[in-house]
């Protein structure tokens, strides 16, 4: 009997191992979720390559969390399919989820139990842990998030940041192939946020795929290799961060003495200009910088400084999501 089980195990291990190099960590096809007449997510085709750190961006209500819940089998899609680490979700959550650590919709723990007891409870249901490993894993996870000292205190008495860190500890109880973090820096102070970034960077260095949802653009820009932007349930952009940023052309930021004058001069010259913090921003996709400076000088506007700038994620996000507002 034991032999049979072992063979079955070996067999089950083989498929994902051989597919590992080629299969993406996550692939969804035409993912759609409706609640009654409300469409929460529609036609999402998202692919996350192995080893990527994907930032999911989108304003509140854009379907980020619903999408994540469908990825993890918490919510059943109305239509479409999810393949997580090569396993179909929600049919094979049992095979995929042991390899996935997650912190979704905030940390969930029991207030009347201590941090350690809460984590032990998580460890007890963790398929990847056996025997004495359970306790070791709990202690290591507590140490990793800096909660060893507070482990005996009841969860009730934890600060928001400590709660968040305990949630992270639960997600990282065992080594994972994929880690899904939903708004991981919520409630953390700047130091805590930095630490989370370090954890993500380490996971990335280990080759772990990370999916991160956030409304903090700078966070995504700093930590992610890939980004996906959702608006009103639709995936409007996805890809490697570099590619995304390059798809939007560079611009020239000009500081002038009289902004009004400069604005008028450039508009007369038919140059795409906008005002930004008292400076002028000119899109350089179709124009060259000398032309802009020349136009200003011709109109007698004093130019103090001009510098080329690559578009930030903020610009892309603003441009992509402003659409109907």
């Amino acid at each position: 009997m034991g032999e049979a089980v072992d063979t079955a195990r070996a067999g089950a291990h083989e498929a994902p191992a051989s597919a590992r190099e080629t299969e993406p960590a996550l692939r969804t096809r035409s993912l759609r979720k409706t609640y009654g007449r409300t469409v929460a997510v529609s036609d999402v085709n998202l692919t996350v390559p192995r080893g990527a750190v994907l930032g999911m961006l989108g304003p509140n209500g854009s379907g980020k969390t619903t999408t994540i819940r469908m990825l993890l089998g918490l919510t059943e899609p109305t239509s479409g399919s999810v393949e997580l680490l090569g396993h179909r979700i929600p049919e094979h959550t049992g095979r995929a989820l042991p390899l996935v650590g997650s912190l979704v919709e905030g940390p969930g723990f029991h207030p009347f139990l201590s941090g350690r007891r809460n984590l032990r409870r998580c460890a007890a249901v963790e398929p990847g842990l056996f025997g004495s490993d359970t306790d070791t894993a709990v202690e290591q996870a507590l140490e990793r998030v800096g909660l060893s000292e507070a482990a005996e205190r009841r969860y009730r008495s934890y600060s928001l940041g400590m709660k968040q860190r305990l949630g992270l500890a639960a997600a990282l109880l065992v080594p994972r192939e994929l880690v899904v973090l939903d708004e991981p820096t919520n409630g953390l102070d700047p130091a805590g946020t930095r630490e989370i970034r370090r954890v993500i960077a380490d996971l990335h260095a280990d080759g772990t795929t990370v999916i991160l949802s956030s409304h903090l653009l700078s966070e995504v820009e700093n930590t992610c290799t890939h980004a996906a932007v959702l608006r009103e349930g639709t995936l409007i952009a996805q890809g490697a961060l570099d590619t995304l940023l390059e798809s939007t052309g560079p611009s020239l930021l000009v500081t002038v003495a009289d902004t009004e004058e400069g604005l008028r001069a450039l508009r007369e010259a038919d140059l795409p200009v906008s005002q930004e913090n008292g400076d002028l921003r000119v899109d350089l996709s179709d124009n060259r910088a000398p032309e802009v400076i020349a136009a200003l000088v011709r109109a007698g506007v004093e130019v103090h400084e001009a510098r080329r700038e690559r578009a930030g994620l903020e610009d892309i996000f603003a441009r992509l999501t402003e659409g109907e507002t």
């Binding site: 079955a8 195990r9 089950a12 291990h13 049992g94 095979r95 042991p98 007890a124 249901v125 963790e126 398929p127 990847g128 842990l129 056996f130 025997g131 490993d133 070791t136 894993a137 290591q140 996870a141 140490e143 990793r144 998030v145 800096g146 909660l147 060893s148 000292e149 860190r165 065992v174 080594p175 130091a191 805590g192 630490e195 370090r198 954890v199 380490d202």
Partner: peptide, 27 residues
């Protein structure tokens, strides 16, 4: 935050397939 060590060696346990043992969950 000093205690927040980011690199910890994974537990030595052997990864196995299948869910956590039923009676451990019950306990």
């Amino acid at each position: 935050m000093n205690g927040m060590v980011s690199r910890v060696e994974p537990p030595s346990g052997v990864r196995r397939n299948g869910p956590a043992p039923f009676w451990r969950v019950v306990r």
